[in-house]
Design a protein around this nucleic acid. Sequence first.
DNA 1: CGTTCGTTTGAATGGCATCAATCCTTGTGG
DNA 2: CCACAAGGATTGATGCCATTCAAACGAACG
Lengths: 249, 249
Amino acid sequence: MPNSTKQSGPVQVADWVDPCSACDARAASVCRAVPNEKLQRLADCLTVKHYEAGETLVFDGDSASHVYNITSGSVKVFRSLADGRRAITGFLFRGDFLGLVGSDVFSFGAEALESVQLCRFPRKAFRELLMQLPELEAELLDRASHELEAAQDQLLLLSRKTALERVASFILRLEERARERGETGPVHFTMIRADMADYLGLTTETVSRSFSKLKRDGFIQLVEGNAAQIVRRERLEAVAEGAFGEHRA
Amino acid sequence: MPNSTKQSGPVQVADWVDPCSACDARAASVCRAVPNEKLQRLADCLTVKHYEAGETLVFDGDSASHVYNITSGSVKVFRSLADGRRAITGFLFRGDFLGLVGSDVFSFGAEALESVQLCRFPRKAFRELLMQLPELEAELLDRASHELEAAQDQLLLLSRKTALERVASFILRLEERARERGETGPVHFTMIRADMADYLGLTTETVSRSFSKLKRDGFIQLVEGNAAQIVRRERLEAVAEGAFGEHRA
DNA sequence: CGTTCGTTTGAATGGCATCAATCCTTGTGG
DNA sequence: CCACAAGGATTGATGCCATTCAAACGAACG
């Protein structure tokens, strides 16, 4: 595997390069909270892993031996009922952290949606890092808080929003997160309709119908590469928040 | 309204008692992580507050100036859409913590379901406590992790479970939490059907019908005081997890 | 004893699921 | 380069579960 970004410094010990100092996902990841001089402690216990689309990162029921930080690509996280019904509980992108669990067994699965690169830490080592690096623990708590809020928004979506409102919310949220990662232009969907459906508590057909309606009504334009251009953001936001109960565009 | 606990007058310095050392909610609360000798730091910045049923603890949109620890009673936490549709995102009981948010504004409301007592901390002071007491921060992270997992279970419930499965899951979960607090016997419901409905993404009528069916089929018995006795737990758990797709009892 | 609030039950409606067919895109091999 | 296969997306027809509308019932309270 030809690593083109060789550390130009004269490394005495070995040919090993620090994966952290030059990491372009750092600004978006938990490790941004770790000062440069302590970054080596992270580097010391991580393994860089790579997954292709469709590969499984975490099997439901696996012992929770590691935690993960996504550095590129995207991932779906899901949990299932015995008979196969499934809910996707979240999509992860560059900078997202995975593996914060109370118990020692994962109660969810995770699968790559496209080519994914991530840093994997042994849970035990990570736990010790947390004790050594209070900045890191604070960052994690902060992220957990945000995730909790996002989850509560999703509870409202699943409890009370119509199919159209769900899809509109989804597109807007996905675009917002892409912008946070510095990606501009049309929202690119790395997941298929069935995944959106499992995330939104709908079926593929209903997701597709909702997309069609949003397109027909001029809120979005589908563009090549499985992406959507938001046309009238404010109107779309109004739809997403249920402002059109009685009206018809 | 005869308030029997009158503030007993202009105290010089003395009459004040440490509210923490004798607190019977401590074993269930975040403060259990704080060693005895540091407990005073918590006591120094908290206010004991009391709410009656129906009173609002937190208004949606309020500046997030405080965090809360419930010491008795129960609370509903909810968020709403502009047109009044509402989802209850959680019920809180003795030992539960409220107020972990990223932003400085609450994006949810909270209301007492019955007489509630809690400890209120100024957010700023609590933040400093967190830095001084790593045990407390670890405890909070642990709780946040568990809450996140619970939220994901709820996402699956709202996405994919039938009305009957939702209500069965709800009863079981409520009973489990009551047992964790040391309460035995029938599950006592402190919330009305409409609240259950807003929690389960249903209507009051559908919740009521599901209760009736569970009773008719011998899974639960309704007992006085708005409570339910679980009759055949394993069968009820099977219902809650969707084991009866094709069958009929 | 009447009022209010909550619960339960019944009947009808509707939004999304289900079933089904077609279209579109992508990749492969002749 | 085209034919073909396979997976995914879209659109249409029909059905069903939960909602909506409606009414009766029950408990708490003044």
